[in-house]
Design a protein around this nucleic acid. Sequence first.
DNA 1: CGAGTATCCTGTCCGC
DNA 2: TGCGGACAGGATACTC
Length: 285
Amino acid sequence: MPELPEVEVVRRGLAEHVTGRQIGDVVVAHPRAVRRQPGGAAEFAGRLRGRTLLDARRRGKFLWLATDDPDLVMSAHLGMSGQFRVAQAQPELHARVGLDLGGQQLWFVDQRTFGWVAAEELVVDRHGQRVPGSVAGIALDAADPALNATAVARVMRSRNVAIKRLLLDQSIVSGIGNIYADESLWRARVHPEAPAPRLSVPRLVSLLAAAKEVMAESLAAGGTSFDRLYVNVNGASGYFSRGLAVYGRAGQPCPRCARPIRRVTFMNRSSHFCSNCQRRPRAQD
DNA sequence: CGAGTATCCTGTCCGC
DNA sequence: TGCGGACAGGATACTC
């Protein structure tokens, strides 16, 4: 359940269900799930066995669980289809990694295997925050109160690319994926292919505010899920798909002006927008 | 260097 | 019903 609100739903579920639990046996059922772990499955299991899980943290789409070793965390990225499930036994399909937590088990389940888990050290990043090594290059997320939207807007204006590409660039601002990029652009009335330097700083700041807003609304609804692939640690789905204005609504009326929503291929994926509300800036400066 | 593309997987859906 | 192709919410390793 890839984007910020969905990952936050998972983080909350983990915080509720695994905090204070001690790790017993560790099973790596599919080695690809630990491909980012130096030393592979043996190292992953060896580092975590016996440790107690503490806080669940998140930045953008990256998750990590603190442990009673202050330098060691279990980090994870859900990729396109990763889930954490609290269960009494190994899930039948796509179970990749399991932790025995005494009386219950925590499973990383991932149909498409783009997700991963790792046991890694904390490092101090450029914001002075302690984060897993794999997260050090990831920008603060769009919902973080510490995010300086004006500074992000200036970085965006310095790049001569389509604005949607920058919204999806996790090193500029993190947590936004294809769904919320389209939704934010629609709210802020910005064309997805508008070159960033053609947009003013205030316009970009309002775009970032729109992203924060739409993701907060989604989180309040439990996130967006279209099917069983995207569920929280209990297997429950979120309801924000009803709140989407453009994503997945090609041909349906724009909620603002009733003209049909367009879908185009951009960056090898789909973009949904209203060509009436979201005008492409003129080529002339 | 920045910008754009190809690729890693599995599953579903749609048209023929 | 079977088959091929497009597509899916992501990140990164490439090339130019």
